[in-house]
Design a protein around this nucleic acid. Structure first.
Lengths: 215, 215
DNA sequence: TGTTCAAAAGTGGTCAGACCACTTTTATAG
DNA sequence: CTATAAAAGTGGTCTGACCACTTTTGAACA
């Protein structure tokens, strides 16, 4: 029942634990979460750690807090997402593929939106990303996709994406390698040119490469 | 320079302050943020409050933390930190539109998957749906989309879709009307023929029609 | 018995201070 | 000038203490 202390990221662990608690005890949207003090004791951690985790979830809009009242699962669409996702993930490992696929769906669409909108695809971000790529030869994959999704301007998608990312333990997680550079370069360039389909194709190739590498 | 105490959501205030600090002092991606203790003193708040704000940003992937080293602006180049923060903080309430958009993203992709897979698009379901449409002239929209999504074979997407559907209070919810029939007919036919882009186009037209009707 | 309402308990919000483990800087010995 | 050990700095965590507010409780009253 206790929480391990993996040296760092304890509050991330607690976020996980919270998800399990919400799921196991079937706390519905709008339902009350155990108090901070109770959680601290149950998980054998300090109250401050619990709070760091709760505040994170609150910024994401997954829980609501009422001073003097308690903490509640958000009475809103998003938290249920958490429930759905945790239920899903905790079931079987084969569903991991679904998580990846779903994430790719969201990513692909964000690319479309950005590439097809003149204003969005002409933001200076892409230019500098490209420059950086050429100079340094590397880019954090997650960061690139996050940037695209943020630009695509759908908060809900961003939230879902972040959640999926946390669960996904994506096979690709490091920096881009040299082999990938041409794909990445093409990818970003096509976006900037507004060549939607080409951009997506480059994205697919890139993704494929990433999966192949790590197997 | 101090932080107000608006009764609640202090850590949100701190997130705001952090944004300003990063902006005003032009801390670049990868650059170092003042230490927690320094921030606490500068903003006249306790260190724990600072930490709650920082942990939130960390969960969002906007900052990085190195034990013993310090806290840094996330090292992805030229990210739109300011925009992200305002997106989350300003709580723009165009949420409902986001829900619809997200749902459409999932639907569109399901259509692609079905149309591009020979086995899936040749299932007898579509034939009988088409027949029904012609004979009875009506189809439950939700049923059609559900069928497509189920066929696309991603349970996670299905769950998310159902969820979004519940919250969406979609403007279209009834049976199809006569005007829509040609679009629907085209839509299903194109899927069966494996004409992905045409099917999606028909889908878009259909969707557009539905929205127009109810406004 | 039923209602009212004030006290008590519970809860989130915040702060201060204390360690720990780790990294960076500084100062010293060679 | 360099190597290395000490010191300072930093994030990570816990504890305990108040505060302001809400919920619950229980006793007095009608």
């Amino acid at each position: 029942m206790g929480v391990d202390k993996p040296a760092s990221k304890m509050f991330i662990q607690i976020v996980r634990e919270l998800r399990e608690i919400i799921q196991n005890e079937k706390i519905p949207p709008g339902g009350k979460i155990p108090s901070e003090r109770v959680l601290a004791e149950r998980l054998n951690v300090g109250r401050s750690s619990i709070r760091e985790a709760l505040r994170s979830l609150e910024l994401l809009g997954l829980i609501e807090t009422r001073r003097g009242g308690g903490t509640f699962v958000a009475d809103f669409r998003n938290h249920q997402l958490v429930e759905v996702l945790s239920t899903f993930i905790l079931q079987e490992e084969k569903t991991l593929r679904n998580v990846h696929e779903t994430r790719k769906i969201l990513e692909r669409d964000a690319i479309r939106i950005v590439a097809e909108d003149e204003k969005l695809r002409n933001l200076p971000v892409w230019e500098s990303l490209l420059t950086n790529l050429i100079i340094e030869g590397r880019i954090e994959r997650e960061d690139l996709m996050r940037e695209i999704i943020i630009t695509s301007n759908n908060r809900l998608v961003l939230k879902i994406w972040i959640l999926l990312k946390q669960y996904g333990k994506e096979p690709y997680n490091g920096l881009s390698t040299e082999e990938e550079q041409p794909f990445l370069q093409t990818f970003i360039s096509e976006i900037m040119l507004g060549h939607t389909e080409e951009a997506i194709q480059a994205f697919e190739l890139w993704t494929m490469l990433l999966h192949k590498e790590r197997e």
